[in-house]
């Protein structure tokens, strides 16, 4: 079953940048789709158009066979609660505890009153602890988010998105600001979520070694257009040069 269908998606920013030029692709349930491409090729814009953090200029997005391109208000919030998102800069609330950060993933399903006064049922705390356990940092629960290392912050961010019980998890260059070793361990958590919970993952990545290791399918963007779609193992030297330009050379990240 197709969890996501993107049809002829365009995004033109106010300054005239044509970031997406007619993107069309489908995502099957349970896939680990990786999007690669140079900086500025439109990867981040594409992810943000899917969960409507950015409004696409034209085209449509179908999530679970429902057109979500133009849904508004309450309905849009309902769609958003089903799509988790992890960012390059982690985007945690720095001055709050890890626990509060994780619980904030559930806000879409909580009432305004109870979330402002932080009156949560015990079951919510249990769920938060479980999410933190999944990413292996339960012991940091009471620390302030900005006291953690980059890798730990990203794991908290993953735990936060797990609170949504997302059907689809979007990850915008989740390891781009982490060192190679940490990158790999963070990617393993995405793999675990993908395998254990059957969550579909769409992830923007830079390093081909990580792509080959984790992706079940790859889409390559160049200047807002899809120039490659297929298995990670099929990306050879020629494709690599097409995607990243003649000057590029592959760096190994283990």
């Amino acid at each position: 079953m197709m969890i996501l269908k993107v049809k002829n998606l365009h995004k033109i920013y106010k300054n005239g940048t044509h970031a997406l030029k007619g993107i069309t692709f489908d995502v099957k349930e349970g896939e680990f789709l990786v999007i690669i491409g140079l900086s500025g090729s439109g990867k981040s814009t594409l992810l943000r158009c899917i969960n409507r953090l950015i409004e696409p200029t034209a085209g449509s997005v179908y999530f679970l066979d429902k057109d979500i391109t133009h849904v508004k208000g309450e309905e849009l919030r309902k769609v958003k609660t089903q799509i988790g998102m992890v960012f390059q800069q982690f985007n945690l609330i720095n001055r709050r505890s890890v626990l509060t950060n994780v619980i904030s993933g559930k806000l879409g399903q909580l009432g305004t009153f109870s979330s402002v006064f932080e009156k949560f049922p015990q079951s919510l705390y249990d769920e938060a602890y479980k999410s933190l356990e999944t990413v292996g940092i339960k012991e940091k629960v009471d620390e302030r988010a900005d006291s953690l290392s980059g890798g730990q912050q990203q794991r908290v961010a993953i735990a936060r998105s797990l609170m949504q019980n997302p059907k689809l998890l979007l990850a915008d260059e989740p390891v781009a600001s982490l060192d190679p070793a940490t990158s790999n361990s963070v990617m393993q958590y995405f793999e675990k979520i993908n395998k254990d919970f059957g969550t579909t993952v769409i992830c923007n990545l830079h390093f081909l070694s990580l792509v080959r290791k984790y992706a079940t399918r790859v889409i390559a963007l160049k200047a807002g257009e899809i120039i490659y779609q297929g298995l990670p193992s099929e990306i050879n030297e020629t494709w690599f040069k097409t995607i990243y330009g003649e000057e590029a050379e592959e760096v190994e990240i283990r």
Partner: peptide, 27 residues
């Protein structure tokens, strides 16, 4: 804007976004 983006991506409403993503940054 990062935290605002993250909180609004969870489907939070306006008041929740302000309380969780804006207020801690401006105290």
């Amino acid at each position: 804007t990062g935290p605002v983006e993250a909180i609004s991506a969870t489907g939070a409403n306006k008041i929740q976004i302000v309380w969780y993503a804006v207020v801690p940054q401006i105290v």
